[in-house]
Structure formats: C-alpha cells, structure tokens
C-alpha cells in the first residue's frame, strides 16, 4: 500500500513540478558562473559535469566539435588540474564552478538540469560525462544536427543509447591515457553481446552488461550498473534527468520503441577503464561521493589489475556499421 502510494506520488505531475523547481533553485544557486560565452545562434550545446579530467579534455573537445557541437557548457566540480586555464582560452566553452557535494547533487545531474533549463531549452542538448564518446549510425557523413533534425521529424524528443564500456587488452592499471591520446586507439575493445535488458512501460529499457556485469558482478548481476542513457535531447523546460541520465521526467521520454519499430539509436563509448581509474578510486573511497555507498568503486579497487579483454566476447571497434550489424545500435528510419 505504502509502495503504491509512493509510486503514485513520484509519478504525479505536481510532485515532479515542485521537485524540479526546488532542485533547480537549490542546485542552481550552488553554481558560480566563471565564463558564459553562449551565443544566441548556438543550437547544439553539450553539457558536462567534470572534475580533474585534463588528461582527456582535449580529445573530448575535439571529438564533439567535429560532430557539430556548437558550444560546451561545463560544470567544474572543483578541478585542481589546470582546467580553468584551459577553458579560459576556448571561445566555445562556458564554465560554471562549484565546490559542493557531487553526491548531494544527484551525481551532477541536478547541476546539469539547472543549466539545461536555463540555457538549453529549445536547443538540441547533449549531456555526457567527459569519458563518454557518442557514436550514432552514419556519423561518418552526418552531423549531430542532422540527427537532431531527424528525431524532430519522427516526433521523438530524445536519442536512446547503449553505453559500451571500452577497454584495452592489457590490465587496467597498465592502460595509460596521456593528454591528447585518442581514446578509441587506446581502448579499442568492447563486449559484442551479453547485454541484459528489462523493459518497463514507465522507465523504458533497463540495460546491464559489458565488463561491469560479467567481470565485476558475475555473482551479483542485480547490482551491475545501468547502461541505458538518453544523452541527446531536444530540451524543454519541464524536462529533468533523474538518476545520472539513465531516466528522465516526463517518463514518456524513457520509452525506447514505438509502434513503427525501434527508432534510430546510438551508442556511448565509455572510457573509464584506464590507469587514471586508480587515482579516481582512491580519491572517491575517501570522498564517498559515488553511487550506492561507492559500491561500484570498491569493485574497481579490487579489479584494478584485471584484464577486461575476453576472447570470444571482446571485439575491436571498427565503425558504426559494425554496431548496427551486432544489433547494439539501430538505424531506424534514418536510412
């Protein structure tokens, strides 16, 4: 009974309206604008929450510029590695700074929500972490804006993606990423199958899999992290990310398939499994600012020496057609 009532409450419009206003007020006020260089003509904006990511920021910035992102909006959660100097020299980067707790801010999503509402409404917004690299069908010849236009035409406000954990064929701690390195070259492998899905009318499709299921949670599959995300959204002011961009309000956004079939979908390469994970893990174990009592980070600590490459499951990334052929990504009607 209590559960039912709770469910009614969290899926009610009034509750979500009040909650999102309150969150935007509370977490929006934690952000201090360092530089706002947004222009009116920026239609495709990337939002990201970062902390000490200088070793990959250049590759990240270059990659998304090439896909057609007009502007980058960063929430800097107390970086100490020279991010401020880097961003000061970039014309297409705006920065908001905060030293407040990452965990309290819903692992950064509340900060992003506040900025998305203020600066992203009506725009094509891409919300990714700095270790996530989006791929989508035909990306070799079509831009993110083309994709956005197609989504608009088929009446879908967002793009669903599968997060693919990328790794190398060496132990994690020996996979060293230097600034400017191409992450796809360093970690070319991903799991070609084994993604467990649970579809639900309300919350869309919950996906688990990859090395974080088969290597870190082989006896506790229920605890494996979610791999479904919605990073690309035509933002509207009542939209809101919940639970680190795996869920969205309103819940109709979470549905992954329509009557006309499965629409175009993408994949998000996740380059977490490099040597910098060790420092990150040590820092997080002290800060305790990650999901589930940093349960996941304990797993990473135990497994830092393992090699994630597995013969028969791991394949090197060759291109978007490969992901479509494997059934991990869909072309939909975007032929």
């Amino acid at each position: 009974m209590a559960r039912k009532l709770k469910h009614r409450l969290v899926s009610s419009r009034a509750y979500n309206f009040v909650l999102s206003r309150w969150q935007n007020l509370r977490f929006g006020s934690q952000l201090r604008c360092v530089q706002n260089r947004l222009r009116k003509e920026d239609t495709c904006i990337l939002f990201s929450c970062i902390r000490n990511e200088m070793h990959r920021i250049d590759a990240f910035h270059r990659y998304y510029r090439a896909l057609g992102v007009d502007h980058f909006v960063f929430v800097d959660n107390g970086s100490t590695d020279g991010f401020a100097e880097w961003s000061a020299g970039k014309k297409d980067v705006s920065v908001w700074h905060t030293d407040k707790g990452y965990k309290k801010a819903g692992f950064g999503v509340h900060w992003c929500n506040a900025l998305l509402r203020k600066h992203g409404t009506g725009k094509l917004c891409l919300t990714v972490d700095p270790d996530e690299f989006l791929v989508y069908p035909h990306m070799e010849s079509r831009t993110l804006k083309d994709l956005g236009q197609h989504l608009k035409e088929i009446g879908r406000p967002c793009l669903h993606v599968l997060m693919l954990d990328a790794y190398s064929d060496r132990p994690i701690e020996e996979t060293v990423m230097a600034p400017g390195d191409d992450p796809f070259g360093l970690c070319p492998y991903f799991d070609r199958d084994g993604y467990v899905q649970r579809s639900n009318y309300m919350s869309g499709t919950f996906v688990q899999g990859g090395p974080r299921l088969r290597a870190f949670n082989r006896d506790t599959p229920k605890e494996a992290p979610a791999l479904n995300k919605m990073p690309l959204v035509w933002w509207q002011k009542h939209y809101r990310y919940q639970s680190s961009a795996h869920l969205m309000w309103p819940w109709s956004l979470n549905r992954t398939s329509a009557k006309t079939g499965i629409p175009v979908s993408g994949a998000l390469f996740h380059f977490k499994f490099v040597s910098s994970l060790r420092e990150k893990v040590e820092e997080e174990m002290a800060r305790r600012q990650h999901y589930g009592g940093s349960r996941e980070y304990k797993r990473y600590k135990e497994n830092i020496r393992t090699t994630l490459y597995l013969e028969g499951v791991s394949v090197p990334y060759e291109g978007t057609d490969q992901l479509v052929a494997l059934g991990l990504m869909h072309v939909g009607e975007w032929v």
Binding site: V196, Q197, S199, T205, T256, I262, S265, V324, G327, V335
Partner: peptide
C-alpha cells in the same frame, strides 16, 4: 519508393527489442 536499406532481422538480445529480458 525507398532508398536501399539493410533489412535487419529482429533477434533476441538486439538492443531495445520490445519484449527483451522478460
């Protein structure tokens, strides 16, 4: 009528396949 397209056959385990995982 239509540009050429690779006909994809639905199969179990394909991403976002309706009914997967139940």
């Amino acid at each position: 009528r239509m540009p050429p397209r690779a006909e994809t056959v639905p199969f179990y385990g394909r991403m976002f396949e309706p009914g997967s995982g139940i």
